[in-house]
Design a protein around this nucleic acid. Structure first.
Lengths: 243, 243
DNA sequence: TGGAACTATTGATCTGGATCAATGTTCTAC
DNA sequence: GTAGAACATTGATCCAGATCAATAGTTCCA
């Protein structure tokens, strides 16, 4: 069983399966969705400051979102998988608060928000799904805040790998063997660690036979070991919280 | 000009002014809102794991939300001011993902979510406001992630104080003099710092005449100095991002 | 196919903040 | 009021991870 070279979702924007909409609802939604041509690695889907008009559903490939922080440096705010929504944080500002950039060849569905809003008045399930997605995004970020606030480099990387694992599984891929689409420097940036620390920590976990790392390919050998990590590299009593 | 002993919002749950609804909409919304008796310090409004049924609008006083993390320790996920909404992260799980606890005497409005959802089908502006609030919550948390991921103790505390300052201002209070309702240990927990570091950093900022601290009362003396902090305690070129 | 730029790993050193410890201060309840 | 508990500050020490530096491996394109 090989890890995929890149992740692809199936169906209409990956929404049909994940949104649990009726056929009628899907058809109506389909009517407002625009499929755009694929983005190549490094291309941006929208940019910080652009006027907000649409949210985007990732169809295939991975996307990172970044903001330019106080010092003019780029800070990564998230990685997005197929089926996930981009741009949900721009509603209230009428502008995108960050830049969404393809990490590999990516295709997305553009969903004009005004139309989605109209439609959601008529389709209760769509409205609920949309709110649930936003709720999930809030919950997910709170989870990430926990990781950032409390943990050692090992815990941060452990949680990071577990989160990726869960999301790959949700997409129907192996949850024990997958590809780190993003660069080491991106991981460090996201987790608040120096690249060197990311590298060293991956090596350390490999030496302890918790994971195997070959370039971008990662295999989780001991998921319990990864789950029960604590700041001393010892086993802790309870798993690291997820989702 | 004295700092308030506790913050109180005016109007119907503080929603009328902040939600920009028509009188009709407010009346309809008012019909489904329950006002509960005040909570005393330390009392919880809802608890992690409770079945999700309502969101809550803070009317008066400050609230903290916490989750129990992997090690059984309590981790603070946010502080909430009057006018802000609690429980938005529970939608998709049908359960509250954390505990909301009063930091002082607090009153809230309970808004049953099922009814709010129904109503939002009919009232476009209400629907939009609700989504905007969720969007804002997402944006706010991303901002917090930036603080947690990148910054030194000084930057973290600087950003924290600035965020508080902005929110007090939004409520119509002084943005340069206010009361830290939460304990030092809460601040440390929230920011991923030891209590001792919080204390030392506040002292350091005071010695540099950026702020004045007297117990829970804080005065911002040099808002630019606080804004332009970077990890060296030097001035950086651009302000720390907010909201 | 070569080499320039980018990416990753590993080593050596330094430092900011955690931790441990002691003391001071502010609440709260009786 | 006062005692005890809870909270906050300050000092001393130590270590995880940042930073600096060198090298090795990859990718990309001319």
């Amino acid at each position: 069983m090989n890890a995929p070279m890149s992740i692809q979702s199936c169906g209409n924007c990956g929404l049909s399966s994940m949104w649990a909409l009726t056929q009628l609802e899907m058809n109506r939604l389909g009517g407002i969705i625009k499929k755009s041509s694929p983005y190549q690695r490094g291309e941006s889907i929208f940019r910080q400051g652009d006027a907000f008009s649409s949210i985007y559903a990732v169809r295939a490939g991975m996307v990172k979102t970044t903001v330019v922080n106080a010092n003019g440096a780029e800070q990564i705010t998230g990685f997005y998988f197929p089926g996930e929504l981009l741009g949900l944080n721009g509603l209230h500002e009428k502008a995108y608060l960050g830049t969404a950039m393809a990490l590999e060849t990516v295709s997305v569905c553009e969903i004009p928000f005004a139309k989605l809003d109209e439609l959601s008045a008529m389709l209760p399930e769509l409205r609920r799904q949309l709110m649930c997605r936003m709720s999930q995004e809030i919950a997910d970020e709170q989870n990430m805040m926990l990781v950032l606030a409390k943990t050692s480099a090992e815990e941060k990387l452990g949680s990071f790998l577990l989160r990726l694992s869960h999301r790959f599984k949700r997409l129907g891929f192996s949850d024990t063997q997958f590809r780190l689409t993003m660069l080491r420097v991106d991981i460090g940036n996201y987790l608040g660690l120096a690249v060197e620390t990311v590298s060293r920590t991956l090596t350390k976990l490999q030496q302890r036979s918790v994971i195997k790392v070959e370039g971008k390919e990662v295999t989780i050998l001991d998921i319990a070991g990864l789950t029960f990590l604590n700041s001393n590299g010892e086993q802790s009593a309870k798993p690291i919280a997820l989702d």
